[in-house]
Nucleic acid binder design. Structure first.
Lengths: 132, 132
DNA sequence: CTGGGTGCAAAGTATTTGCATGAAC
DNA sequence: GTTCATGCAAATACTTTGCACCCAG
């Protein structure tokens, strides 16, 4: 499990039950879009509002505690910040998986005058389960 | 220059002045978001509507004549379909540049049960001009 | 002619904001 | 007690749709 309260405090975010729940959802599901977060949190907080989700996700993005991942042909998903990694997306079931890639091999072919700060890589295709 | 009319016909799209202008804008600017397209087309067609832009962009996406490129922390841009390539984005001025990359080196490290259909790579950083 | 595109207005969807209340510290 | 989060409602932004009119084929 994860200690959401400590994490939130480290990022200067006041600890509220809603925020703890958001962190725990993202921790257990890996990647979620706004609607998925909202639907899941409704179970625990029947009167939670979408505005609360948006405000918190935006606050966490600003504190660089969450990251937005843009997926081709799909809604953006959010994930807790962790070591750099790339993503594998199944076009059929929507599953998103983290993968470790050595992207440094790509950079060698670039114009050295450009100062690279970040590399995003998303593979799309069909996962083994959906191929059956 | 580009022969927009022939291109549009090849993709089963009726040739209208608005569509020709969209193709020419994208051809000369490489990548544009909806607002940029709208602002530029307004110069040539003072009464063009945003709905026309959306309808045409969507029609061209369906015909696989355009492609949407999702950029971290920025609006999606659209580009004419061409050979596979990756993108370099300047966080400072927003400039987007096409780059050729050999992404096959990345795939070797992946689980072979996943059938990869597409790889998107976006480098973000600061271009040489903005570093000055 | 006929089908489909255009522009406008309205509807729909997504996201943000203002504010009164209540919870965190 | 003070600050800030929450939930609601309203406002704003973004995108799609319906329709009358017009142009491309």
């Amino acid at each position: 499990m994860i200690n959401s309260s400590i994490l939130l405090k480290e990022y200067d975010l006041k600890v509220t039950p809603q925020r703890v729940a958001i962190v725990e959802e993202l921790y257990s599901n890996g990647h979620m879009n706004i609607d998925e977060l909202y639907k899941n949190l409704l179970k625990k907080f029947p009167s939670i509002s979408l505005a609360t989700i948006y405000k918190n996700v935006n606050a966490m993005l600003e504190k660089v505690f969450l990251k937005e991942v843009k997926i081709p042909e799909a809604k953006s998903v959010y994930e807790l910040i962790k070591e750099d990694h790339s993503h594998l997306v199944c076009k059929s079931c929507g599953m998103i998986e983290d993968i470790d890639l050595d992207t440094s091999v790509l950079q060698s072919s670039l114009n050295s005058n450009f100062k690279i700060e970040n590399v995003e890589v998303v593979f799309s295709g069909i996962c083994s389960h959906c191929q059956k």
